[in-house]
Design a protein around this nucleic acid. Sequence first.
DNA 1: TATTTACGTGAACGTTTGTTCATGTAAATA
DNA 2: TATTTACATGAACAAACGTTCACGTAAATA
Lengths: 189, 189
Amino acid sequence: MTKKERFLAVSLKLINEKGFKATTIRDIASSLNCEVANIYNYIDSKQSLLETYLFGISNEFHSAVDTIIDSNISSEKKLRLIIRTHIDLMVKKPYELALLVNEWRNLKEPKLGTFVAERNTYEDKVKTVIKQGMEQGVFKVLDLEIATFTFLSTLRWLHDKNSEHPVQMNPIEIERQISTFVFSGISKK
Amino acid sequence: MTKKERFLAVSLKLINEKGFKATTIRDIASSLNCEVANIYNYIDSKQSLLETYLFGISNEFHSAVDTIIDSNISSEKKLRLIIRTHIDLMVKKPYELALLVNEWRNLKEPKLGTFVAERNTYEDKVKTVIKQGMEQGVFKVLDLEIATFTFLSTLRWLHDKNSEHPVQMNPIEIERQISTFVFSGISKK
DNA sequence: TATTTACGTGAACGTTTGTTCATGTAAATA
DNA sequence: TATTTACATGAACAAACGTTCACGTAAATA
């Protein structure tokens, strides 16, 4: 692990614990046992640090969902794979995922606009999958907006709870539980 | 509307747009067309302002859910009423609801601890309703943690989307859509 | 009328913030 | 060996922050 990688990891953890605005360069330097000025050997500015994290994880979601959409499988299977993608990223990159939820507001224009646009595009991709499922008679015909965002919010649970007391279950079992909820709801029969 | 009420409303809106840390006392004064020092005729500190908002809305959720739990109705009906409560609060107090989601991290100890405890208690109350439904054979027997937080995340959607482009539907229709999703999922039969 | 209360003002405070600077060292490269 | 590169240092900067101060005004209260 290079010095820069260690710096990136420590910063990410700190920003997650205290929030981006509350995490100072001096905090990071202190955790790293180095001088403040040293940080600027790794980055240009505190803002660019946040941008690196956010656009990095954003791209991961996009490339994953693109592969899913382009594949020749049923809408239900696509939705199932999207669930799986979110779970995998929660397990592999919990801190980056948390930033995506909590800290994107701290971006400044024009990066903020770019980020929001990317996120909207992601939501639209998911929406398309659900829409196709409805048209094919596989999914209930609900309000498309509400269905999509209720679905995405369900997946957001992954981050929230995992960040406070990490889930013990294995990813496959989590996927089974969430898929059950998403596809057939909470009512018995 | 008294001066203090106007101050509280303007602050709330600003904090929602820019975030608590990014909203300065000078921002608030500027929006209010008054001097900075004037703000301190209304509040003791910036922190106390956040505390007022957060514990206020937190109490509203608690008293609503307490009434629901104590009432002599089925588990399904209780869950339906909880959904309705969240929707009503989203419509009536969207800004406070957003703070509850986004800004609670900015509380400082010991208030932070109190808040987190209150929130956990709320989650436990919802969890109890779901647990009873499972025991009575009304709900599927899923992992209780996952079921509860997936459910709560579904309701969180209400805030997220409403804050960006407010939902046009009336509360009753929203409730119908979300209840369908929660109780019977997205799959057609 | 006298006095309290609510609201308003502008300057100043002490701290903390991100960032830069000039300078240094030790290792990799040429 | 000479020179570039990567990392390190401590002091300093200007800006922004929450908060306080002494003072002022006008209306409500006694």
